[in-house]
Design a protein around this nucleic acid. Structure first.
Lengths: 347, 347
DNA sequence: TCACTTTGATTAAACGATTAATCAGAGTGA
DNA sequence: TCACTCTGATTAATCGTTTAATCAAAGTGA
């Protein structure tokens, strides 16, 4: 009735070679004391038989599952593919598998999702929170990727600096009135990005911030952002806090007959998949997700290896902020101003 | 040195209540023969201690890990969040965890990714292939989600019917010349969608197909699609085979000063995240990923439970095609023709 | 009362790997 | 030759769960 055995196991290899299981285990893991000659014979034979160690057996004995959890409270975020890919890549390079857990945006379900991961015996988890929920200390090491200003953050892109780059870029192009377009004011990430933009503006410049969530609460989702009116008010640059909002901005302006970048400039954040292929292609700022993931995972793995028992704790990394990179494309250009004196100031 | 013990286990509960481990196991699983009274006492005490069964121990004994693998050869596909979310939801409802594996587009790495999953002891896997690579029979049941026309497909959206819906919609609006815009001709999904569109056209209608990959191989990635020229040639409808291409089409036309939907119509596929919020919002066709995932996962789980040993096989489901739903938004409208006789035919 | 079934529990053997402890034999120096 | 250290291997315990086999006691029918 019970499952016979799919593949070969240590003892099969052992009896087949006339040695003990311990020797086989030692030979394959490189621990213990086995003569080089025998090691080679065992390795060869194991490869021949297509031996794959049973994770279950190993996990039971060592107390380590070799699996990390990835918690995404907002899997629908278009940033997700990049994050998932980067984490999966870094984890599998470190010999770990990645178990995903999603709470479909529901904050209450996040705790449940985390518990599910713990029950499955993950050795640690990477959490990408949204709107900074309190990370309830789980029963394993936890690395948080959000933004440097979030308490408990392990590593993240330097969203503030990214915003700064955008502002400096726009200032250099002569823009004086910038409309910052965000989604939700409670997002730490978006706030840092907006703060960074403001910090990079010159004293002579002016900015306003428009939060789409507020607007949609009044006018319904998918409503117009009223950007044509903003153009009339003298805004020449629209700095969205995410490429999704940048796209929305871009198309709304285009539909209103406003030319980009001739009339106004639009910038985004994150360099999402569509950014290079829309017309005009989007000037944006990119986070080095591979590097962030690599730092987060290696910090997590270090903590896992250091802790003798499975205890809950927030992981810290040496480098906790990774610079964002400005990608200048077609959607940003020189400000279309009556008096172009501002360019002079730049020299 | 070795991990002491994080939580309580069966034997701790057993000794604490003065019964045997087997009895505790039976009481908690509802198998064997235990008096109702004792069952209750054991359950209470287990809950009190916060007992969580060790997956490792269970997996070792039963040969089942309770984990499914999700293989995405192209995780960067913007469709991924929806798929991942739906699969994860269906799997966790069925009591399974989801381990992701990605090959970063590299076809060769796909086999390696599958092997990694097998090594981790997944009970089965869901594979979403791209460009129909041969699914090398893995050492476990496999459900394939691609398109009904792919051999070995388990369940998928009815891409053909989705295309048909698009064509009927455009025909009803009076369009006569349709440009189908796809990415890659080798994709089964895109071919089925295109075929569906052609099948829904009336005899009087004409279509051409433009494959972006070809164009980019000549002109570089991110190049113009030359759509303004197509408009001059009399095309009034642009049916993209994915919302990403639809977006590219939309913005290129807008930038050329062509109004949508007044001058021409644009449609997409998949109802991706930006489709409702761009201006004009995108007419598209949506697949019921939740239902597809539910069918795939439950078929997979059935097969897993039926097979005594872990054997490789392609899973089949009762329902293998799920209808797509047309979402009419602002980007499609009546054809702007010189002679509007075509509308008459529709009556 | 005896043979037999039913009930409610226990015993013990796996599953497959890791690893501390042990051991036989060979080599070494005095 | 004796005592000692290495080397290279084996033994056996252990992780936590499941489950077939066993068993004692109680109930049943003749």
């Amino acid at each position: 009735m019970a499952a016979p055995r799919p593949g070969p196991n240590l003892s099969r290899i052992a009896t087949s070679l006339g040695v003990s299981v311990a020797t086989v285990s030692n030979a394959l893991s490189g621990k213990g004391r086995v003569s080089g000659q025998l090691v080679e014979r065992i390795r060869e034979h194991a490869a021949e038989l297509g031996y794959v160690p049973s994770q279950a057996g190993r996990a039971l004995r060592t107390g380590r599952s070799g699996v990390l959890g990835l918690v995404l409270p907002d899997i629908a975020n278009p940033l997700f593919p990049k994050i998932a890919q980067a984490i999966e890549f870094a984890a599998s390079a470190a010999g770990y598998g990645v178990l995903i857990a999603d709470s479909r945006g529901d904050v209450a379900a996040q705790t449940e999702a985390i518990n599910r991961l713990v029950e499955r015996g993950v050795d640690g988890m990477v959490i990408i929170p949204r709107r900074a929920p309190r990370i309830s200390a789980a029963a394993c090491p936890v690395a948080v990727i959000d933004t440097p200003s979030t308490p408990g953050n392990t590593v993240a892109a330097d969203h503030w600096q990214g915003g700064h780059e955008i502002a400096v870029h726009l200032a250099g192009l002569g823009h004086r009135r910038i409309l910052i377009i965000g989604n939700n004011q409670e997002s730490n990430v978006q706030n840092d990005r907006a703060g960074g933009i403001r910090s990079g503006m010159r004293p002579s410049m002016h900015s306003e911030t428009l939060w789409i969530d507020w607007l949609e609460q009044e006018n319904g989702s998918g409503c117009s952002l009223g950007l044509a009116e903003k153009v009339r008010q003298g805004f020449t640059a629209f700095a969205a806090l995410s490429d999704l909002q940048a796209l929305r901005t871009l198309t709304e302006l285009q539909q209103a007959g406003i030319n980009i970048p001739a009339d106004v400039s639009v910038t985004g954040f994150d360099d999402l998949i569509w950014s290079p292929v829309v017309t005009p292609s989007l000037t944006t700022v990119r986070m080095d997700m591979d590097r962030i993931a690599e730092i987060a995972v290696s910090a997590l793995v270090d903590t896992i290896k250091a802790s003798t028992i499975r205890e809950g704790m927030l992981v810290t990394a040496e480098i906790e902020r990774v610079a964002m990179q400005l990608i200048v494309r077609q959607s940003s250009g020189p400000a279309n101003l009556a008096q172009k004196t501002s360019e002079m100031e730049n020299m």
